[in-house]
């Protein structure tokens, strides 16, 4: 009997020295305790989910790129043509010129501005800087020639043209249309306008009951 215990102890020590403790890091795919061939189930179903491989399609991916000459439905309400509201979805007027002001379909309120601030901070401020002066964090690492918002060219630029720049990019700036939904783009523009105002504002522009918050008299 004693031999049996010694053998058991030996096996325990051996297992422990091979398998080790928890919380180590490893690069091989995790061990499957209940492998599919031994315990058939529904753990790995053939259905396609986002960003997976699929031998069904020639390019081997489950996410299908949009066919040519189509626009993703997320760009507009389902069943409604993207061009139904050129102002909202392209920043253009019917005659093809850049629209000024904001689309009538939007309500400009504090919630909208807060959304703009949030989206601006995420997607724009790394390069354009928190106040839009082109001094974002990437400048420190060598990003060149990010324009400041605070010159006359950009102050006078039509909102529609800014919308187009966000959507399709310009120069070295890549398009951000995939990251910002049309309404979010307009929210960002509203916030950019606020940043521009803030740089040229005077004490007189601040409502009297809010001056104390900013330490103004």
């Amino acid at each position: 009997m004693r031999n049996a215990y010694i053998a058991t102890l030996f096996i325990v020590v051996l297992t422990f020295s091979i398998l080790g403790l928890r919380n180590r890091t490893f690069t091989k795919p995790p061990m499957d305790v209940f492998p599919e061939w031994l315990f058939p189930g529904m753990k790995y179903q053939p259905k396609l989910t986002q960003q997976q491989q699929s031998p069904f399609f020639a390019d081997g991916r489950s996410d299908r790129p949009a066919p040519p000459n189509t626009v993703p439905a997320s760009f507009g309400p389902a069943g409604q043509g993207v061009r139904s509201d050129d102002f909202l979805y392209r920043g253009k007027l019917h005659d093809g010129s850049w629209a000024r002001g904001f689309p009538p379909a939007l309500t400009l309120d504090m919630k909208f501005m807060e959304r703009g601030r949030e989206r601006f901070t995420i997607y724009c401020s790394p390069c354009h800087g928190a106040v839009g002066d082109g001094g974002g964090i990437t400048k420190k690492y060598g990003m060149g020639a990010v324009p400041t918002y605070h010159d006359d060219r950009l102050r006078q630029m039509a909102e529609g043209e800014i919308f187009n720049t966000i959507t399709n990019g310009k120069g070295q700036m890549n398009p951000y249309g995939d990251k910002l939904a049309p309404r979010d783009r307009w929210a960002v523009i509203a916030y950019v306008r606020a940043l521009q105002l803030a740089q040229t504002g005077t004490v007189a522009d601040v409502p009297e009951d809010h001056r104390a918050e900013l330490g103004l008299k």
Partner: peptide, 30 residues
């Protein structure tokens, strides 16, 4: 008695080594 001891060890080992705390935590692929 021996089988009971082995049973306890096996249960403890399964608890420790066959749960995601051991099998998945720490996965850091290249």
């Amino acid at each position: 008695v021996y089988l009971c001891v082995v049973g306890c060890i096996a249960t403890a080992a399964a608890q420790y080594y066959m749960t995601p705390k051991y099998t998945r935590v720490g996965y850091a692929p290249m």
